[in-house]
Simulated scan of single mutants.
Amino acid sequence: MNSAAKTSGPTILAIANQKGGVAKTTSVASLGAALAELGGRVLLVDLDPQACLTFSLGIDPEDLDLSVHHVLTKGLDPTEVIVTTEDAVDVLPATIELARAEADLLTRTGREYVLKVSLEDLDEYDWVLLDCPPSLGVLTVAALTAAHGVVIPLQCETLSHRGVGQLLDTVHDVRRFTNRGLTVWGVLPTLYDGRTNHARTVLDTISETYDLEVLEPPIPKSIRFAEAPAAGRSILRTTRRHRGADAYREVAKHLVARKEGRTP
């Protein structure tokens, strides 16, 4: 397995799936915390106007005067907006204002590159994880243009993978036009119920149909994931020993191995 092509600065991963309800934001927060545990300096970027990632890390979007919206549409330096959290990760937060960014950027020349340019000087980080909105609009394309790799969270249920082909078409277009080095790092199985053969069958189907790597172990379905955001922390902090937290830790080790060019 080859590591993603990059020269210096952080490894940037877009966590993307236009289908909602696949534990995308949970995965960004949990992987960020796990990578920080492994010694990485981590920045999480909330690109969803619903600001779920921002809220889940203990930040009330309504209390913010500045957000990623100002970085993307006003050219504000991200260091003026970044907030440090109790999870030992930094976050570039979102507010509902981000909903206007799609319209603001549509008429702008080079809109696909606006996030890439904003992140270029953040060399103090080892990892930047982009929490993409549940759509294939301007913000997701900008995230894919800025990223070195894509991780696709996928709920292990029938029909949940029908949108994967559409996302891969977008990745293909981005690779052709705005980011030749973009690679798909794999599918991350979420909401996994190990008691059924059905979930494993869905994963096998994905692997065979799209020739994508499946990042193991699958993330189990657990009520603890729903409880963590209310505490403003990731599950790695609210429940130190938990099979869901440990699964994210293992996936994080896999990502580090790939970054370093090692076989996970």
Rank of each mutant, 00 (worst) to 15 (best):
I152V: 07
A16T: 10
V28P: 08
E260N: 15
V114M: 10
H242G: 11
I223M: 10
T109N: 09
K253R: 09
V28M: 07
H254P: 00
V83R: 12
H69Q: 11
K259F: 04
T205V: 11
G58S: 10
N197Q: 06
A29W: 03
E62R: 10
L129C: 01
G149F: 00
R258A: 09
L129D: 02
T239E: 15
S135C: 05
A4Q: 15
T85D: 04
G20K: 03
I235V: 15
P264R: 04
L236Q: 06
K19W: 09
L167K: 09
L122E: 12
L64A: 09
G244L: 05
L53R: 14
T95E: 12
T54V: 06
T107D: 08
I59Q: 05
L106S: 12
P78H: 02
S67I: 00
L115G: 10
T11N: 03
L119V: 12
S67V: 01
E157V: 03
E62T: 11
K253T: 08
D193R: 12
T196W: 10
R233E: 05
E213D: 04
Q155D: 11
R180Y: 04
V184P: 04
A4G: 15
A94S: 07
N2P: 13
I96A: 08
V141L: 11
G58K: 03
R241V: 12
N2S: 09
Y248R: 05
P189K: 08
D169E: 15
E97F: 01
Q155C: 03
V151Y: 13
V89L: 01
S3A: 13
L31K: 12
P220C: 03
V187R: 02
G20V: 03
G75R: 06
R237Y: 05
Y192L: 05
P93I: 03
W127D: 00
R262K: 12
T107A: 08
